[in-house]
Structures are given as C-alpha cells and as structure tokens.
C-alpha cells in the first residue's frame, strides 16, 4: 500500500509537486499521467525515498519513507526515470549486486534471479555489458532489478519507454500478471497503456491532481464517448443539415477529407443506429461507419491544458 499526505516538493521558487494526497491499495495499478514536467517523476522520487519532501509525508506499506527508510525501501521495487544501471556491468552481475544489496541469499537469491531473467527474457544478453545493450533490453534490466526481491509495492517510472510494440505488450502482460497481489504505480505518457494495464488513472498538472478516476471514467469524459464517424459517397454538405436535425444529436463536426462527418450523440443515445437509419431513409451510400468511443488523448488534453489557458 502507498499513502501520501499533502506531499509537496519545492525547488527554489518552483513547486514541482503540490499537496499530493493519494492512497493506493494492493491490487490497484495506478497510472500516473501528466504532461512532461508535471511532477510525476518528482512525486515518485519522493515516494521512493530519494528526494525528501518539502512538506507532507509518504508511506510504503505503513512505513514512513523519511522516518523508517529501511523498512520502506525493503517493501519497494523502484524503476527510476530512464532505467539507470551500471553500464560497465553485465546484467547477471548487476542483478547479483542488487540481490546482495537487498539481502537475498543462497538458493532464494538464485531462484529470484532466474525468475526475473525469465520474466523479462534477459537470457540472451545476460553476459553482455549493459552499455552495449539496446534501449529495450536496458529498460528490461531496470525492470528486472525492480522486481528482483518480489516487493509488495512497485513504482515504475515509464516502464515501457523505448520498447518496441511486442516488448510493450510483454511488459504490460507481466504487470497484469503480478498486479493482483501488488500495489503498483506506473507513470506513463502513453495513453493506451492506461487502458491496458491500469485500474485507476491519476492525472497531474503543475504538481496538482486534476483527475483521479478509472480509465473508463476518464473515457466517459471524452466528448467522443458517444460519437460516430460516417462517410458517404454523396455530397456531405446537404447531409450535415439532415444529421444535425436528428433527435438526440448534440453536435456535428466535418472532417478535413470532405467526405466524412463525426456525429456527437447525447448520453444514452445509440448514435450509430440513429445515423445508419437516417442514411437508409435518405438513400445515401455509406462508405464507412465507425463508432468513436472515448478518446483518452482528447480527455488528457482537455484536463491538462484547460487551466493553463485560463
């Protein structure tokens, strides 16, 4: 479990994290979202015990990270920003070093190293200097290091950054596999990641929480949540007026290609059925019809940009 209360960090004049109060329970995978410089990494650095808070406190499994750093760190696996690792070492020696630091011994140590090597497919590079590894392998070495002692709490700063789509999929699957018993915080700017691994999404901007919801809840804030995009062979200009007049349609937007429009429906309306029915009645040739669902990037932009403009 992770708890923070009024966690704040100031650098000179600038407040990186401002009054962050969070509680993350076991079984939760919290996606930490926000534009670059929003304070995600600073918040994670404080929870991991690297940076001291200017105000407020953070606790990992009930251990305050400042008052009981040792106990808090034992319970925590941390992947710092950029997945740093000692470049001159080979992954095997690196993992053994981390195991020593964490007090894993003998048979248990060997088993845990074997397990993470297998989980992250590090077998082929186990004896190559980390400096020579690809970005994807480096990231996975960092993840292996964080998972090594099988901690109840994991804080992963951009765990899939630099991975190719297959590797991303693998890492997300891994997170999903271990998630039920663990408390996990993942920071990311890849929004699809939130939908595929997170049970909860917290969006921060300028160090403050601006949204705390389930991914589905965030999606529901999208203006596209009940929208349908339709393309027809006929002149779109006339069609727009007809579609606009349909009951339950709240808005319409013409696409740049000139042939398709996005129709926004009010909540509870089956927009796709309504549009299809209308096309049949009008005798238009429908070349494409697509339900939009919510767009997370849209919500993200709305939430994180709105107040900066104001």
């Amino acid at each position: 479990m992770i708890e923070t209360e009024h966690l704040t960090r100031r650098f000179d004049l600038f407040t990186a994290v401002d009054d962050l109060t969070l509680r993350v329970e076991p079984g939760e995978v919290l996606g930490f979202l926000g534009p670059n410089g929003a304070g995600k990494s600073t918040a994670m650095k404080m929870i991991s015990g690297f940076l001291a808070p200017s105000e407020g406190c953070a606790a990992v499994c009930g251990h305050d990270v400042v008052a009981e750093p040792h106990a808090a760190r034992l319970a925590l696996g941390y992947l710092p920003e950029g997945a740093p690792a000692y470049a001159e070492m080979v992954p095997h020696a690196f993992l053994r070093f981390i195991a020593d630091m964490r007090g894993l011994r003998g048979e248990h140590r060997r088993r845990r190293i074997d397990t993470v090597v297998e989980q992250l497919h590090l077998g082929p590079v186990l004896y190559q200097p980390i400096a020579t590894l690809s970005k994807g392998f480096k990231r996975r070495v960092g993840l292996a290091q964080a998972l090594l002692h099988d901690p109840p709490v994991l804080i992963l700063d951009e765990p899939t950054d630099g991975l190719d789509p297959n590797q991303k999929h693998e890492v997300r699957r891994l997170i999903n596999t271990i998630a039920p018993e663990k408390t996990i915080v993942v920071s990311t700017h890849i929004l699809e990641e939130v939908e595929s691994v997170c049970t909860r999404a917290v969006v921060i901007r300028s160090g403050r929480v601006v949204a705390d919801d389930t991914p589905a809840g965030l999606l529901a804030r999208s203006r596209y949540r009940n929208a349908v995009t339709v393309a027809i062979a006929e002149e779109i200009g006339n069609a727009i007026d007809v579609l606009k007049g349909l009951p339950g349609v709240t808005g319409i937007e013409r696409a740049a290609d000139g042939h398709s429009v996005t129709v926004f429906g009010e909540d509870g309306l089956d927009t796709a059925a309504r549009v299809r029915e209308c096309c049949q009645v009008q005798g238009w040739t429908v070349t494409a019809l697509r339900a939009e669902g919510g767009r997370l990037d849209d919500v993200f932009r709305d939430i994180t940009a709105s107040e900066t403009a104001a």
């Binding site: 991991s48 690297f50 630091m101």
Partner: peptide
C-alpha cells in the same frame, strides 16, 4: 551523470 545514484540511494542503504 548516469542517474545510477537514484538507483543506488533508493536501495536499502544509507
């Protein structure tokens, strides 16, 4: 420079 300080000093060590 390489950022490993963050790794090192978040391990159970003073």
């Amino acid at each position: 420079d390489t950022g490993t300080i963050e790794l090192l000093l978040t391990l159970p060590v003073t």
